[in-house]
Design a protein around this nucleic acid. Structure first.
Length: 589
RNA sequence: GCCCGUGUAGCUCAGUGGUAGAGCAGCGCACUCGUAAUGCGCAGGUCAGGAGUUCGAAUCUCCUCUCGGGCUCCA
């Protein structure tokens, strides 16, 4: 038997957090004897432990402080973490009052491996023992700074048909400073919440009478969307994509052919029948783009054929999962399907990856990593094709210079894929772009092109989206910039404030000329004190607040207040200001 | 969908069984001002909705709905 955990002072965060989770469980058992404990792993930002309180009792937010106090007692006692091994039979007996632990042990028992031993961690002199693979810190006194964050629900083994447990989330770090800085980041994230900023900046709303997950965009938000889409369309056209447009509904036969009714129906809105024909709202654009491709005969000389559309799709999401613009029921994908010859696949993938970096970079997002998801156990198609596609994806990733990891077996059943994540201004990771090599649909739709040998060949097909969805990407931009969108994307770029009513005519003149140069400008008349109007323009996060008074009327100048700068520039010539603005917009600064 | 929490004016929030409140925003009047809140006034609410308990309910109970945190799923 091994007496102590094999750890040293350099505890990994996972070990630290895992040990903290044990102490959480011990504290809960002390406070609520008879609690059934489930599992308590470390997660990305901390750890959790799942509990089931017998007798229909539930934790409340106030209990967290109580539990934390108890945890600090256990830390003060500096209980050692002692590892022991025993047979599954002994373990079943030891945990006879812990049904969830028993279930885990039974699972281990039923696994087809020779070793039927399990490891346990004791915290003497306390009675707490947990079934655990380890490793752990030496003793509870070695825990770092921790805090319990929130309570939520969770299903046993993630199965909604099983017991609903209560999950307590916490986080832990080696030092108090790291914990404080993490907590500060949570506060910062809350301030940047796009749902809050979206309403404050008058960009979009969720109206109960319209329905959950169905955002409406007011003029400012609609303008931002338009600017995003216009830029994207321009770049797609410049990169050899062709713009198409497909309707929001299509006949059920299409989705039968594509397999969506078989595989994806639970996310589809129900059908509607007109004149004996059944239609579904499209949950994806691919079947429609494919129909367009299949509509006529294609020569190898046309390939690669890149069809692009801002396609609005509808997906039923259960009410509980909706979340601002990042999880909605109606979304618009910057969607393209690329049809190419097998030998063109690698080149196309490389091109798409370059395009991703270029496109997201234009929006000020420059830190990426990727995940290559490979063939799952349950898959369709031919293994040789899977290997060919995976290898092409791997090579494209290697050439792109993007950091990537491989998620074995995480691909969709019909496609290996690359998911691109970006990191925002406060270090959070967001999944945005996705690139898939579809190994199903070309067969299902019997797609072909005529090769140089004058016979039919099967094309490869890529799905790809760069923003992912416009709505979600807008949410990411709002949070990344904390609402202060770069000038080229700001719905109002300039606000011109007249000092007194005698300056209003000049202020209107400046706005007129700004608009003439395609800048988005508004005038603010002298009906409130200047200070109040400066304040409200700043709160709207307008990039440039111009103040015009006597000196400016006489000198044909403006007073410039740039966003983020505390001091104003007086007497800037109009032409000079136009040029500065022009340059900033063109450079996406 | 499920568990927990939440819901009072457009927004942020006070009000715990006895006549619905404040600040901001809005509207009106006055103020005409050089850089982050001018003053006065007016208007604004089926206290999410429904049912119940009570002499009396924003307040207590039950049901429904919304929103939030998660689970699951994914863009």
């Amino acid at each position: 038997m091994i007496s102590a955990s094999a750890v040293n002072s350099e505890n990994s965060l996972d070990t630290l957090r895992h040990s903290t989770a044990h102490v959480l469980a011990q504290a809960v058992l002390d406070l609520w004897p008879g609690t059934f404990i489930a599992i308590g792993p470390p997660v990305e930002d901390g750890f959790y432990y799942d509990f089931y309180l017998p007798g229909g009792k539930h934790f409340t937010q106030e209990d967290l402080a109580l539990i934390e106090t108890k945890m600090r007692d256990i830390v003060a006692q500096d209980q050692p973490f002692i590892r022991k091994e025993c047979s599954t039979k002994e373990a079943l007996n030891l945990f006879k009052n812990q049904p969830f632990k028993q279930e885990i042990i039974e699972t281990i028992q039923n696994e087809n491996t020779g070793d039927k031993k399990v490891s346990l961690y004791y915290n003497p002199p306390g009675e707490f023992v947990d079934l655990c693979r380890g490793p752990h810190v030496e003793s509870t006194g070695k825990l770092g700074a921790f805090k319990l964050i929130r309570i939520s629900g969770a299903y046993w083994r993630g199965d909604e048909h099983r017991e609903q447990l209560q999950r307590i989330y916490g986080t832990a770090f080696n030092t108090r400073e790291e914990l404080e800085s993490y907590l500060a980041q949570l506060v910062e994230a809350e301030k940047r919440d796009h749902r809050k900023l979206g309403a404050e900046l008058d960009m979009f709303y969720f109206l109960p009478e319209i329905g959950g997950g169905l955002p409406v965009f007011s003029p400012k938000g609609a303008l931002v969307r338009h600017l995003m889409e216009a830029y994207s369309v321009e770049k797609h056209l410049a990169s050899g994509y062709q713009l198409v447009w497909t309707p929001h509904l299509a006949r059920s036969e299409l989705f039968e052919t594509s397999g969506h009714l078989q595989w994806y129906q639970e996310n589809m809105y129900p059908p509607m029948e007109m004149e004996g024909v059944t239609y579904y709202p499209k949950p994806m654009n691919c079947p429609l783009h494919i129909s367009l491709y299949a509509n006529k005969l294609h020569s190898y000389k046309e390939l690669p054929l890149r069809l692009f559309e801002f396609g609005t799709v509808y997906r039923f999401e259960r009410s509980g999962v909706l979340h601002g613009l990042t999880r909605v029921r109606g979304l618009t994908q910057d969607d393209s399907h690329i049809f190419c010859a097998p030998e063109q696949l690698g080149h196309e993938l490389t091109g798409v990856l370059e395009f991703v970096v270029q496109m997201l970079g234009a929006f000020g997002l420059r830190e990426f990593d990727a995940e290559l998801a490979t063939r799952p156990d349950k898959f369709v198609g031919d293994i040789a094709e899977w290997n060919f596609a995976e290898e092409a994806l791997r090579q494209a990733l290697g050439a792109s210079g993007i950091d990537y990891s491989v998620a074995e077996g995480e691909g969709a059943f019909y496609a290996p894929k690359i998911d691109i994540h970006l990191r925002d201004a406060i270090g959070r990771r967001w999944q945005v772009s996705t690139i898939q090599v579809d190994l199903q649909l070309p067969q299902r739709f019997d797609l072909s092109y005529i090769g140089p040998d004058n016979t039919k060949h099967r094309p490869f097909m890529l799905h790809r989206a760069l923003f992912g969805s416009v709505e979600r990407f807008m949410a990411i931009l709002i949070e990344h910039y904390a609402g202060a969108l770069p000038t080229w994307l700001s719905p109002v770029q300039v606000k011109v404030l007249a000092v007194r009513d005698t300056h209003e005519e000049y202020a209107k003149y400046v706005v007129f000329h700004l608009r003439e140069r395609s800048f988005r400008a508004e005038v603010s008349l002298a009906d409130e004190p200047l200070g109040a109007r400066v304040r409200s323009a700043k709160l709207e996060k307008i990039p440039y607040v111009l103040v015009v008074g006597d000196d400016d009327v006489n000198g044909h100048t403006v007073g410039v207040n740039a966003r983020g700068s505390s001091k104003a520039l007086r007497g800037v010539g109009l032409e000079e200001f136009y040029q500065r603005l022009e340059q900033e917009v063109v450079s996406h600064g």
